[in-house]
Design a protein around this nucleic acid. Structure first.
Lengths: 160, 160
DNA sequence: GTCATACTACTCGGATAAGAACTGTCCGAGTGGGGTAGG
DNA sequence: CCTACCCCACTCGGACAGTTCTTATCCGAGTAGTATGAC
C-alpha cells in the first residue's frame, strides 16, 4: 500500500488542529513531518478531488478540511489515495480455463474470488467504521497537549 | 496485490483434483489456465518454500500438495506469495515530527497506525478462517462435475 | 537372459531482463495583498 | 487623506524524471527412465 495514505491521515488530523478557518500550505505540512513538499502536495490534491479537503491558491492559501472529521472515515482517505478498486482483483483466470465462458462474470461465480472478496469486505467495513474524529479523540485523550503543541508548532515553523 | 495469489489459489485447488499421488508440472498448470509457464513456476516455488507444496525434479516430477487442504488457509497462501509484512506499514512519520522520539516504537503508540492495524487484522482473521477445503467443498457442491472434468483435462492436455 | 553403464529427455530452481507503478521534482496558471501614484 | 491601479510574491495544479517492485524470461543442476553393450 502506498505510504501516501499515512501522510494523508496525519495531514488531516493536523489540519483539524490548526487555527480554525485558516488554511495550511503543503509546504508547512511537509516541514512539519519532514516530507518532500511537492509530493505531499500531490497527495493532498487527491484528497481535494475526493472532496475531503478544499484548496485555495495564492497568498494566505493552502488546504482546509472540507467537512467535519466525523464525516470522514478511514475508508474515504484510503479510497482517495489508493483508488476505489479492490486490492485483490480477480483477473478471471477461469475464463481461459477449459469450459470457460468469456461471457460469464467470474467476480460473481468464481468461489475463490468470492472468498477473497469476503476478507476484503471485512477490511473495508472496519475502515469505514472508524472516523477521523474517533482517531482525534483518542489522540487527545492520550496526549492532551497535542492540539496545543501542533498549533504552536504550525505557526512557528521556520520558513526556508 | 500481486495476481500471483490468484494463480496460487487456483493451482492448489487444481492439484487437489489431480490424480492422487501424481505430481503435476508447472507447464501443465500453465497450459490449463493459459498462463506464462516460467512465471507460474516461480510462484509455485514460493508455495514450496512455505511448505504448502512439495516439488520433485526430473521426469514424472512436478508439484504436489504438502498437506491436506483442511490444513491450508487462504492466509497461508497470501503470506507465501505476498510476504508476511503488513500492507500498511507505518513509516513512523511522527518520528520526524516535533517532539518525536527516535527511540519510540510508533507502531505501538501511533493511533493512526493502530487503527489501520485493526482493519488489517480483520482482513487477516477472515483469510485465516477460510481453508482451501472450504473453497473446494463449495465448488464441488455448486459445480459437481469440476473434479472429474479437471482430472480429465489435466491428463489430456496437448503437449506443445 | 541379466546386469551394469552411459545417455537422453524432462523438471525444478535460481539468476537475469523488461515493464509498470510508486516516488520524487519542476515549472506554469491563477490569486490576493501591498505599494504607488493620482485625485 | 482616500482610491484605483499595477506589480509582485505566493500557492496550487498538472506535466516531467528517477527508483523500486512486479512481471516475465532464460539457462543450468539434478533426476528418472531407457537404450545399449558386455558378460
Amino acid at each position: 500500500m502506498s505510504e501516501g495514505v499515512e501522510w494523508a491521515l496525519h495531514s488531516c488530523l493536523t489540519l483539524s488542529w490548526a487555527e480554525p478557518g485558516q488554511a495550511v500550505t503543503a509546504t508547512k505540512l511537509a516541514a512539519f513531518y519532514d516530507l518532500p513538499a511537492a509530493y505531499l502536495n500531490k497527495q493532498l490534491q487527491a484528497l481535494v478531488r475526493a472532496e475531503i479537503l478544499t484548496s485555495t491558491s495564492g497568498p494566505r492559501g493552502g488546504f482546509r478540511l472540507a467537512r467535519d472529521l466525523k464525516q470522514i472515515t478511514l475508508m474515504d482517505v484510503v479510497a482517495a489515495i489508493e483508488g476505489p478498486q479492490d486490492a485483490f482483483r480477480c483477473q478471471g483466470i477461469l475464463r481461459a480455463a477449459p469450459g470457460g465462458d468469456p461471457e460469464t462474470d467470474y467476480l460473481k461465480t468464481c468461489v475463490v474470488s468470492q472468498a477473497m472478496a469476503r476478507a476484503e469486505l471485512a477490511w473495508r467495513r472496519e475502515l469505514a467504521a472508524q472516523t477521523l474524529a474517533d482517531i482525534r479523540d483518542t489522540v487527545e485523550s492520550r496526549f492532551p497537549r497535542t492540539p496545543e503543541s501542533t498549533r504552536h508548532r504550525l505557526t512557528n515553523l521556520r520558513r526556508p
